[in-house]
């Protein structure tokens, strides 16, 4: 990778990391779960221009954007920052809070012919611009000032709302938009999995039982070794999918990545919760903010089965004797 690019990305991530460690704590996560939007944090994100990362006209690239999203996962940032970033790259930079949802295919419930229903929009109640995405389509429908039809939350306590509104603009996005949103979830998961590992390591080296820290027990060591392997695989899979932006096989790289990362979630969350014992099962502990998000994200924008099937169908159509060529073509 270009050394200069690497350096500038490191600076972005370092300053973002400082911002999140100062402003994104357990208290903020709890408040967000009670429905309080993190106004101050959002303002700081916007003031520092982090909402423009990767957008055209800035001096940043999509890989910067996804590195930042991975960091958001690491801190479980309770705001629709990933969706806002993506909409900014599709619609041009604006300063609004943006959302993304799937366009409801059965549109009969919409109030008029030119009205769209968009499901499962993170913080939909707060967004002023929403992008409606359809599986397999490169067209994104942008809806300005949508209205809230139904509010709900996912298993991580993140607001997930249904919105309606009229067509404002249709934009054609180069890289498959559904896969791009999945890619943002991949990176959120990869970041959160890293935190789960960190929390597991921290707990194991602090908690003492039978006269020694539990990190000295082989069972715990092996459990954390398994977790570390899954986290490393997830990070590598996430990076590989980001690097495939612009490649004709982008969708298949996202498929492999989301499927792999989704499998890691089950293993990592289970092991790290087991290590934490009852303490990790309390609401007071911050562990669940990360494990619940991972569980929610692995099911959003295509679960493992969806992406495995998509990739598998493609490989089957290539045939057994072209399988290896597909795998070896990109590293």
């Amino acid at each position: 990778m270009n050394q200069e690019l690497n350096e500038s990305r490191r600076m972005i991530i370092d300053s973002a990391q400082k911002m999140f460690s100062d402003h994104c704590d357990k208290k903020l996560l709890d408040e967000a779960e009670r429905g309080v939007f993190p106004e101050t944090l959002w303002q700081i994100i916007v003031e520092n221009g982090f909402n423009q990362l990767g957008a055209p006209g800035t001096e940043t690239v999509p890989a910067d954007l996804f590195a930042f999203i991975q960091l958001c996962g690491r801190y479980a940032v309770p705001a629709p920052i990933a969706d806002t970033l993506l909409v900014n790259t599709w619609a041009g930079v604006n300063q609004q809070i943006c959302g993304i949802g799937e366009l409801r295919s059965d549109n009969s419930q919409a109030s008029s012919a030119d009205s769209f229903t968009i499901d499962e929009v993170v913080w939909g109640r707060r967004v002023s611009l929403v992008a409606a995405v359809t599986r397999g389509s490169n067209e994104v429908i942008l809806v300005q000032n949508p209205h809230l039809v139904e509010s709900s939350t996912n298993m991580a306590g993140e607001p997930m709302d249904t919105l309606q509104g009229s067509n404002q603009q249709v934009v054609a996005v180069q890289a498959d938009p559904y896969a791009q949103v999945a890619l943002s979830r991949i990176n959120l998961i990869a970041g959160s999995l890293q935190t789960l590992l960190d929390l597991g390591l921290q707990f194991a080296t602090e908690r003492s039982q039978f006269g020694r820290t539990i990190s000295k027990f082989q069972a715990i060591q092996h459990s954390l070794a398994v977790v570390a392997a899954e986290v490393a695989a997830s990070k590598r899979a996430a990076d590989a999918a980001v690097d495939a932006i612009g490649d004709p096989r982008f969708v298949f790289e996202v498929a492999a990545s989301k499927a792999r990362v989704g499998e890691a979630v089950g293993i990592v969350a289970e092991q790290v919760h087991q290590i934490h014992g009852a303490m990790g099962f309390t609401h007071e502990h911050r562990l669940h903010h990360f494990s619940r998000r991972c569980w929610a994200w692995r099911d959003s924008w295509g679960n493992e089965f969806y992406w495995q099937s998509l990739l598998g169908a493609h490989l089957a159509s290539l045939g057994a004797d072209h399988l290896w060529d597909f795998i070896a073509t990109r590293s």
Binding site: A232, A255, L311, L315, A316
Partner: peptide
Amino acid sequence: HQCAAIGRIASHIMTLRRM
């Protein structure tokens, strides 16, 4: 389910190979 099995195996091999 066969597509999913094929895709699942591929997702692991692609990731392991990169590591």
